[in-house]
Nucleic acid binder design. Sequence first.
DNA 1: GTCAAACTACGATGGTTCTCGTACGATGGA
DNA 2: TCCATCGTACGAGAACCATCGTAGTTTGAC
Lengths: 114, 114
Amino acid sequence: MTPPAAHGRDLPHPAREEIRLESVLHALSDPMRLRIVRELAAEGRELSCSDFVLPVTKSTTTHHFRVLRESGVVRQVYRGTAKLNGLRADDLDALFPGLLDRVLEAADRQAGRG
Amino acid sequence: MTPPAAHGRDLPHPAREEIRLESVLHALSDPMRLRIVRELAAEGRELSCSDFVLPVTKSTTTHHFRVLRESGVVRQVYRGTAKLNGLRADDLDALFPGLLDRVLEAADRQAGRG
DNA sequence: GTCAAACTACGATGGTTCTCGTACGATGGA
DNA sequence: TCCATCGTACGAGAACCATCGTAGTTTGAC
């Protein structure tokens, strides 16, 4: 009785052209979310939500991932019981060339400064 | 009786090293403020608050300029009755190389897409 | 000294966001 | 079938933010 899409209900994502610069900047302006994005970029692969050890509860984590997804920064797909998160680096780079890299670089620098 | 600094009371600005990436991104994530920054960059010189024609009241404009100043994006100095606003492009570029340019470029692109 | 212009300060309001806790649903394995 | 795991939904609270209007301050010009 389960509908055809048995393997993975899917989540709403903005299409590439729908991604707004302001939303992306806003998504990245939260420390927790910037941390998530940096980790995702450093790892270079899709990570499940539970791969992240964050100083907030699970529901708060869910909230932040949703903001990231709705702003177009990450793509989320279900994989069994886990939900994999991948950076939409290709889409972002097509829309806003170099932006994500400069932000990540800036975050690294700032972290280096302590 | 006026203290020595007769020509221009001065406003609190973060020092270069105090500028936080998250604050900058947050400042730039508001449409009104991004618009201000773009205009400032396009003009390439200091502009007074009243040079901007924004669809908000003056008190709201004051608010946005303060956010921009406190986050380290603009520098404000009094010049007689006017207040001049200049982009802190040098400071930002020293801290976060290329970031401001990529944001401005991204904003142009997005504006171009309509 | 008076006046207009530029901007600020303050208080209020309505909206958004970050955070949590608890309860729920979906998946895959024992 | 039962259960553990992973994540969601919902409700709530506190904080923050964008916006406004009004009243005030500072400055420079007349």
